[in-house]
């Protein structure tokens, strides 16, 4: 098992290198001098050309591009993403503050996705050809298609503005510091409720559909007929014989859903003023804060790779047919 994990890790090294490279070159695609971007916010102040030269040196922009590239790779390897144009602080610190918030949001959304998605998918499949199945199938298609930001606004309008059940934004209440441990925890959950719901519900709809189809596919397998022919109860047939087989590929699906969640989280975080990576990126794009954009984009991609890796390892662990020695064929 450990060997398998190490092997998979080594296999992702070129991918990671590709990601870091791509980020660098996309950022350098920008028409004109990168320094312009840095200066733009302060253009009103008419910066002294000498200062510009100094800045150029400081950010290494006076070097030829391949030297810059090597420097970038080296720095990333050390976890150094430079200094934010805007905040004048190391990007690493800024991002490090944001990532946990994003993880809280996405992991909870993933849980919601799994909980609702899988159970509704199972219900739908077991009740195939009934009204309930039809409703769930069409309903999940519809939910899947609703744009998150609009859903978020409508929920805010209903539950926060009109009913006052949930906060409109922020991560904590005013009196957060006075609360007990449990109180703090509940307060955080209370603030997470709407954003997690909006972020997770689309995924849940997708999972439900996938789970349904997967389970139906498995229920058509001969070993299901065989299990029935041995006299097991229908419940046993579904729970024991079908479900396990149907659930295994779901693991891979979850690995694949991470980029969608991270992408969706950008807008949701912005709407709910949730201080995660997404909001940071959106603000950085608005303010042309390149080091931050490059850092968050790279990290988002790395998280995706990590997610896929976790999915593959989990898959190998739950499916007896995967041997750890050979990399799984795609």
């Amino acid at each position: 098992m450990l060997k398998y994990i190490i092997k998979r890790l080594l296999l992702s090294v070129p991918l990671v290198l590709g990601i870091v490279t791509a980020t660098f070159f996309i950022a350098r695609l920008a028409p004109g001098d990168p320094m312009d971007m840095y200066l733009e916010p302060q253009r009103q102040r008419q910066v002294d050309p000498e200062v510009i030269e100094l800045m150029r040196k400081r950010y290494g922009l006076d070097q030829p591009i391949h030297v810059q590239y090597v420097t970038w790779i080296k720095n990333v390897a050390r976890g150094d993403f430079g200094e934010s144009f805007r905040h004048r602080r190391p990007v690493r610190d800024i991002v490090a503050e944001a990532v946990p918030y994003t993880l809280q949001l996405t992991i909870l959304a993933l849980l919601l996705d799994a909980l609702f998605g899988i159970s509704l998918g199972i219900i739908s499949a077991v009740k195939q050809y009934t009204k309930l199945d039809k409703t769930l199938t069409v309903g999940s298609l519809i939910v899947y298609a609703i744009p998150g930001f609009w859903l978020a606004l409508m929920l805010i309008m209903l539950f926060s503005v009109n009913l006052g059940w949930f906060p409109t934004s922020q991560t904590r209440s005013m009196n957060y510091e006075d609360l007990t441990m449990i109180g703090k925890f509940l307060d955080r959950l209370w603030h997470l409720a709407l954003p997690v719901f909006v972020l997770g519900i689309a995924g849940a709809a997708g999972t439900a559909r996938y789970m349904r189809n997967r389970l139906l596919e498995v229920l058509n397998e001969e070993y299901i007929v065989a299990a029935r022919a041995r006299g097991f109860r229908e419940r046993t047939v579904i729970v024991k014989h079908a479900l396990r087989n149907a659930l295994i590929p779901i693991v891979t699906i979850y690995g694949m859903s991470l980029p969608f969640l991270l992408g969706g989280a950008t807008i949701i975080e912005t709407i709910f003023a949730w201080p995660g990576m997404g909001r940071l990126t959106v603000a950085a794009v608005g303010g042309r804060d390149y080091p931050i954009i490059m850092a968050t984009t790279t990290i988002a991609a790395l998280l995706t790779v990590l997610g896929n890796l976790l999915a593959d390892v989990t898959y190998a662990a739950v499916d007896p047919r995967v041997s750890y020695d050979a990399p799984r064929k795609r």
């Binding site: 397998e221 001969e222 070993y223 007929v225 065989a226 299990a227 022919a229 041995r230 006299g231 097991f232 014989h241 396990r244 087989n245 295994i248 499916d319 007896p320 047919r321």
Partner: peptide, 18 residues
């Protein structure tokens, strides 16, 4: 199972893989 047992054409498909 207890009264009537059945074996299928393709064992590979009729055995639960997991």
């Amino acid at each position: 199972g207890a009264g009537i047992g059945i074996i299928f054409q393709e064992a590979a498909a009729a055995l639960n893989p997991v």
